[in-house]
Design a protein around this nucleic acid. Structure first.
Lengths: 256, 256
DNA sequence: ATTCATTTGTTCGTATGTATG
DNA sequence: CCATACATACGAACAAATGAA
């Protein structure tokens, strides 16, 4: 049988016979260069996964040891990342995501050759429980809105966001968020363009099965959980946000 | 044979016969109250680990199902945390650790009934590699110091810290840190009492086997990794710090 | 909890190419 | 030309980690 999973990596990094033997350049050096070129060309797709070693050896027409020598050299240089039992991957540096008083989503990822996107997963009218209501400064049991979104960069899920709003403060938010999932746009319409982040709490834990599925990451890899409160310029609570980040794909940055 | 691990929890939460049968209060309700009292009294020690269910059942003189009913109720209320295959634990809320421009360690944990402590694990003279040297603003290959510490609160490990200094900036740092592991003290002596945190990067990943051991946490629970650069008031880099936190025991807070 | 397929990690042995003296 | 040392390359088998069934 052929490979059970349709492998999303398509790139054939070499044609057999493209290597020069006995010309003073070791085979593993030539393979190292070829793989590095392939990485820079983005030949391994958004997953960044390389074909397994035996497959690479076949394509290059060399022994597995020789491929391993090349791969190890690239791993030492930080180009590739080897994970026993899982595979070898392009070592994409995690996306650096600044968190501070003035954080906006899409502005963060622009200008660093990543394609940001944000889709609405769900938008529900809910009853605010005691904890969230207290944060939003309304009585427990008040009407509210829960907006669940999935943020991606470069086609890979980055974060699951859940936003809580009090209906009494944003009466038309359901229609507004249906039309445009951007919180910044909603706040601006409501005359709160100058909101800021009052505080952010950061924690980590293993993902729930559903979160691992949504974020397309293994259950063994942890998630970052941030909780944040957005505040108006006057200091009133506007929205409470709880975001679950794919831990292996982001670094949060404070200051700098 | 008796229990293979010497259990550090000593507290007997009840004496048999202390339960009132047939008095209109279900046994599991009484056990729920008794356990809650025990939790509030800190009867389960710093580990927060409850005795195994059969042991609890024996102490209360009831069937294991009855204990499970009580424990489940407390878990639903967020008082206890059940971990299949590991045990039942007091659900200690994670320690809230503020990170900002003026973060100091011991100041953070005082006044919240946790006993902070910090011990030196290792203090080495090293050669600074390119990455760290660049951050510290010295040539790669310069002499430096690496200071590894273990921070604990309440007897439980909280974080493994690694600090990098350039020797040329702090000539006497080896002796100073040997005498007093506090960075604040070192900086103060060097006339840099007014240092601040230039930036902090936050990431998460599974712990290495050694880290799991040092932090006394299961390998399945992730760690938080913070990297931070301390800067003088004049904007010169002073020290680079990389800290690995026990993820289940801390929440980092920005602002607020 | 077990089993299985996949993938990387390790260790043998052997042969060849290259540089040195 | 020969001897030696070392890096390179190949082959086979097994170990260990991962993830899915």
């Amino acid at each position: 049988m052929s490979s059970p999973l349709p492998d999303q990596t398509t790139a054939p990094p070499a044609e057999p016979g493209s290597l020069a033997r006995g010309q003073g350049v070791a085979l593993w050096r030539q393979i190292e260069s070829a793989l590095e070129q392939a990485v820079l060309a983005g030949a391994f797709g958004p997953s960044g996964r390389l074909p397994p070693e035996p497959e690479l050896a076949r394509r290059f027409g060399v022994n597995r040891h020789t491929v391993r020598h090349a791969v190890k050299a690239l791993a030492l240089r930080g180009i590739l990342r080897i994970e026993q039992g899982r595979g070898t991957f392009v070592d994409q540096p995690p996306i650096d995501y600044p968190i501070g008083e003035r954080t906006r989503f899409s502005a963060n990822l622009a200008g660093r050759d990543r394609l940001p996107s944000r889709v609405t997963l769900a938008l529900d009218r809910i009853v605010l429980d005691a904890t969230v209501a207290a944060l939003l400064g309304v009585p427990a049991g008040s009407a509210g809105l829960r907006h669940r979104t999935l943020a991606s960069a470069d086609g890979l899920p980055l974060a699951l966001g859940t936003l809580f709003l009090a209906t009494e403060r944003f009466p038309d938010s359901f229609a507004a968020l249906t039309a445009n999932p951007s919180i910044t746009a909603l706040f601006t319409t409501a005359g709160q363009a100058d909101y800021r982040r009052a505080w952010t709490r950061i924690h980590t834990r293993p993902p729930s099965p559903q979160e691992a599925l949504d974020l397309q990451q293994p259950r063994e890899r942890p998630v970052l959980v941030t909780e944040a409160l957005d505040q108006s310029a006057a200091g009133e609570p506007l929205a409470y946000n709880c975001t679950v980040w794919a831990g292996e794909r982001v670094t949060l940055t404070v200051g700098g």
